Simulated scan of single mutants.
Amino acid sequence: MKILRGTLFGGITFFFLGWLVYGFLLAGFMEANSNACANRLDTEMVWWAMILSNLILGLLLTLILKWSGASGIGDGIKTGALVGLLMALTMDLMMYSMTTLYNLKVLVVDVIAYTLLLAIMGLVIVLTWGKKD
């Protein structure tokens, strides 16, 4: 049950926080500093893939937290932030090296945002575990 709860609540958390951060708070910044030539229009979003990707990320972070023996809020935040930082650096540096989708400012802002999102996601996952199974 712990893995199922973490996957579900972690995925939902990431979906809504991503929508808030990238869809509203950083939307203008990202638009001004990114090459959106490859982006789908909002009306053409493939929702099943978006939802599935968020749930898979929830599962990944839940498994990492479980395997690391995370038990408290601090563990969730620290582990989530570390995973977020490493994932964002990996993806963003790879994309920056091979594409013209965004500049260095976007890279830095995205790494910070993604790290914070996964820190919060880790917090939510640990909180939803409740009592030990």
Rank of each mutant, 00 (worst) to 15 (best):
L85N: 06
I64G: 05
V108R: 04
C37S: 15
L89Q: 09
L101I: 12
L123D: 02
T43C: 08
W48C: 04
N39P: 11
V108F: 09
W19K: 13
Y114P: 03
G122N: 04
Y102K: 08
N39C: 12
G84F: 08
S53L: 05
T90L: 15
V83N: 03
V126Q: 00
W19Q: 12
A113E: 03
Y102L: 07
I125S: 00
T13V: 02
A88V: 10
V126R: 02
T7P: 00
L127F: 06
T7L: 01
T99P: 06
F29M: 10
I3N: 00
L61T: 03
F29G: 03
L93M: 14
G18I: 06
F15G: 02
I51H: 02
R40Y: 13
A49K: 03
M95F: 12
M50R: 11
G28A: 10
G11Q: 02
D42K: 12
I77F: 11
T100C: 15
I3H: 01
S71V: 14
R5S: 06
G58Q: 00
L60K: 01
G58K: 01
G122A: 01
L63K: 04
E44P: 11
L86M: 13
L107E: 07
M98F: 15
L4Q: 00
N54L: 05
A113G: 02
G130C: 03
V46N: 10
G23M: 07
M121R: 03
N103Y: 08
S97Y: 03
L59I: 09
L60M: 10
F14G: 10
S53C: 05
L52D: 03
T128E: 02
M45H: 11
G58H: 03
I12T: 08
E44I: 04
L118R: 01
D75P: 07
T100M: 13
F24V: 15
F14Q: 11
L85C: 10
M50C: 10
L17C: 08
G6K: 01
L55H: 01
G122R: 03
V21A: 09
L61W: 02
I51M: 05
A27R: 13
N103C: 08
T115H: 04
F16Q: 06
W67D: 11
S97I: 07
L20G: 05
L104Y: 14
S71D: 13
A119V: 07
L89W: 11
